[in-house]
Amino acid sequence: MNVPKPRLGVFKFASCDGCQLSILDCEDEILAVADRVEIAYFLEATRRPLEGRFDVSLVEGSISSPEQLEQIKDVRERSKFVVTIGACANGGGIQGLRNFISIEESIAAVYANPSYVKTLDKSRPIADFITVDLELQGCPINKYQLLNVIAQMLAGARPRVPDHAVCLDCKRRNIVCVVVSQGKACMGPVTSTGCGALCPAHDRGCFACYGPSHQPNTAALASRFESIGVPSDQIRRFFHAFYSTSPAFVAEGLRHV
């Protein structure tokens, strides 16, 4: 068996490392994956130097510094298939909230010597700079979705990831709607599946850490929030959170100040 294993690269930009950690959290599967795939670059797990090309590159994090802009282009050139993983890579992440504040103000607020700091004026998703082949959502991603994507690719299939709303998952799991039964604000109707309706299962409303679902009707949800007495500024904060650069969420948030 001299068939070379597919080469996998894992790359990090501005992020918390949580999505790439999901790979190491596959305690039952990681060694099996390492048998089928060559983990050719994964700085958090191995000292292997960066070299050559990659069949699949997993990209975590948002682009927020001038160096990262160059780096992401290099990743694209080296990779056959780029999968962006998580809210930062796909929706700017929580750090994208600074996009709503002036950057000078942010830097001055945290540093004694602002001149040392190099940063772009916005934190932006990967697809703003390169072509992305597949987006895997979530803050953090669901490790089983990731394993599925890797398995589908190993089988030669083009991976598919569902993007229906969390509501459908609640129905499937027989979770009673927290909006209807408890009057709680829940982002489930406009949020992408992937978590398995975790928050409603824990008696709280969804806070949209998987980003917008397919064709989200944000205006209808916002008016429902208004009708159950959610203050306007809170409605804005619901939309301006973990997917800080997703157009549908940004626009809806800006309607509520």
Binding site: D17, R98, I101, A109, V110, Y111, V117, T119, Q234, R237
Partner: peptide
């Protein structure tokens, strides 16, 4: 590692949101 400015954008958020936001400083 580029800065992510948590202390800036926490301003104006509700205290009840803080534990969900600060968790994102570190995935480990």
């Amino acid at each position: 590692e580029p800065p992510r400015f948590f202390e800036s954008f926490l301003r104006g958020r509700s205290l009840l949101e803080v534990p969900d936001i600060t968790a994102r400083i570190c995935g480990i």
